[in-house]
């Protein structure tokens, strides 16, 4: 993923999950992030769809449980 996109992604995650950008790393997961609650996660999906002008399908949506998986799904969507 290109740096500019990754930076935008970190900004969106940081704002949606209300965590500092520097805490966003490849190990970030729903299971290890206190702020990854229902409201913040649903805000994150909505913000990703808006900012990247994409629509996640069902399979993609339920994969978005970690920073790594978000990058994986976004890479596929953006390439399309």
């Amino acid at each position: 993923m290109k740096n500019k996109i990754e930076d935008l992604l970190k900004t969106i995650i940081s704002k949606s999950l209300k965590i500092p950008k520097k805490k966003i790393n490849p190990y970030l997961k729903a299971s290890n992030c206190k702020n990854w609650d229902s409201l913040n996660f649903l805000t994150l999906i909505s913000n990703l769809e808006k900012k990247f002008k994409i629509k996640f399908n069902y399979k993609e949506m339920i994969m978005l449980d970690s920073y790594k998986n978000i990058i994986k799904v976004l890479n596929k969507k953006i390439k399309k």
């Binding site: 913040n40 996660f41 649903l42 999906i45 339920i62």
Partner: peptide, 8 residues
Amino acid sequence: KNGIYALE
């Protein structure tokens, strides 16, 4: 309550 389960 991380949103994923409710969504699914």
